[in-house]
Structure formats: structure tokens, C-alpha cells
């Protein structure tokens, strides 16, 4: 699956993300920029006898380079939104496209690969695997991708080092503070060089100092090709983003942009 020349397997300069099979964001450069992620008339219904619309007829486009937040009170449908944006769930009706690809048309292995390659998750509860070291947790995101263990470790270590955790690579989650754990989770999200970082209440379990630090990192994660999306109920967190999508009762009620 590597895009590297098979005749030249040596450690030549890495031509970008070797794992991405889809059209990469860089490959999309041109006058008509394609949305990274697109929701078109999406509804998500739970329950069979009594139907509950968690999301009804939502349309949304996320463009490369965007730093946005999705905000709303609990029950507004933002968790459902997160599941659909992260391809952890499928819509009952409507279409979800990632880089133009309809996710409902894919089988589980392909959808899983698409998820792993295009989306980096950050969760409120960090969700690190407790029996693995920080390095092992970051490496988890690089498994089953035809990467040699040595290279996998190298890339995982670089991601940790980038977030100032190089010295703690061998530590288990229990040996680290909440802020450190969230940075490990961030390293895990960025190590695959995804098209989109999708964060669920990334500061929800942190004290204000750590929260500010993590938000700062978030703001810096965006690149011209990559979008950063935070789902939160906290208006102050939401306000740090350049685009704010507000939700209520399973619908988008506002979509505001501000200039940095």
C-alpha cells in the first residue's frame, strides 16, 4: 500500500504521507477546492418502534484548513454528529462523503481504513490503552499499514517529541498527568497525518491551565490541507475556533465565521 517506489525502499526523503491511498489534500490544490468532509441531508434515527431523530436533515461542508467547533447543549445531537463525522456511525438517510467518497458505500475493512487514514480522534477521557506505553499508544494508530516496526516506532516517537513528550515515551498512562495523557492522545491523532482532527470535548477533563495549553496546540495543528474540528458544549472553547457551528435539537441553528 506504500506509495514509495518498490525499487527504492531505502530511507529516502519521505514523499508525504505514505499511508494515504485516497486523493490527498495536497493533491486537491486547484481553483475548485473539494470539501474534506461533506454531510448532505443527513438524518440519524435511533430506535425501531419509537423513532428518535438524533439528527435530522443536516448538511455541512468542512473545507481543508478550517479550524472549527461544533457547539450545543447535551442532547443537541453533537455526539451523533461526531460519530458520523468520524465514520464510527452511518446515517439513516442522506450522504456522508470524505474527500468525495460516500462512506455508506464502503464495507467495514475499507471504511475502517478510510477512518484510520483520514481522521485523527481526540477524546474527552483521552482513551489511551492502559497496558501500553505512551509510545505504544501512538504506535497503535500505525498498525496494519505495512509499516516496519522500526519506522513505526520512529514516527510515533517523533509525534510524541513534537508535543514535548519525547522523554515520557516509555511511561504508561497511569504514570502521566491528565494534560500529558491528552497530549499523547493528540500525538496518536496526528501521527497518521490525517486530513481532519476530530476532537470530542478535548479540554473537558483538564484543569484550566492544561486546557489552555491543549487549545493552543489545537490551534497550531491546522495546516492548509488539514481541518481541525472540536465538538464541545463549552462556549469559551468553541469561541477559540474560527468557525462555530451551533446545534440544537438535531439541527444546525447557526454557522458563524470570524477572521483570525
Amino acid at each position: 500500500m506504500s506509495t514509495q517506489d518498490p525499487a527504492d525502499p531505502g530511507p529516502s526523503p519521505d514523499p508525504g504521507d505514505p499511508t494515504v491511498q485516497l486523493p490527498t489534500a495536497t493533491g486537491l490544490a486547484g481553483p475548485a477546492v473539494q470539501p474534506l468532509l461533506e454531510l448532505e441531508g443527513v438524518s440519524r434515527v435511533y430506535g425501531e418502534e419509537v423513532e428518535i431523530y438524533a439528527l435530522s436533515d443536516v448538511s455541512l461542508q468542512i473545507m481543508p484548513g478550517e479550524f472549527m467547533s461544533i457547539v450545543g447543549p447535551s442532547g443537541s445531537g453533537k455526539s451523533t454528529m461526531l460519530g458520523l463525522l468520524g465514520v464510527l456511525d452511518l446515517p439513516t438517510s442522506g450522504t456522508v462523503r470524505i474527500a468525495g467518497q460516500d462512506v455508506s458505500a464502503l464495507d467495514d475493512p475499507k471504511r475502517s481504513r478510510l477512518r484510520g487514514q483520514s481522521i485523527g480522534f481526540v477524546f474527552q477521557q483521552f482513551h489511551l490503552i492502559p497496558h501500553l506505553s505512551a509510545l505504544g499508544n501512538v504506535e497503535t494508530a500505525l498498525l496494519y499499514r505495512d509499516i516496519r516496526p522500526r519506522e513505526r516506532r520512529q514516527r510515533a516517537f517523533e509525534a510524541l517529541d513534537q508535543l514535548g513528550l519525547g522523554a515520557r515515551a516509555d511511561h504508561r498512562p497511569v504514570q502521566m498527568s491528565g494534560g500529558e495523557q491528552q497530549r499523547v492522545a493528540l500525538a496518536r491523532a496526528i501521527v497518521t497525518e490525517p486530513l481532519m482532527i476530530l476532537a470530542d470535548e478535548p479540554t473537558g477533563a483538564l484543569d484550566s491551565a492544561n486546557a489552555a495549553h491543549v487549545l493552543e496546540i489545537f490551534a497550531g495543528l491546522g495546516t492548509p490541507e488539514r481541518a481541525v474540528v472540536m465538538v464541545t458544549h463549552d462556549p469559551t472553547v468553541a469561541d477559540t475556533a474560527l468557525r462555530k457551528v451551533s446545534m440544537r435539537d438535531g439541527r444546525i441553528v447557526a454557522d458563524e465565521r470570524r477572521v483570525a
Partner: peptide
Amino acid sequence: SEIGIRRAVGHSRSK
């Protein structure tokens, strides 16, 4: 939770 994480980072059901 570990299973959820692995699925989120792209491991398929069969994996």
C-alpha cells in the same frame, strides 16, 4: 474501551 480506540484509529472488525 480499548476495542473502541482501536476501531477509531482504523482497525477493522476482522482485525
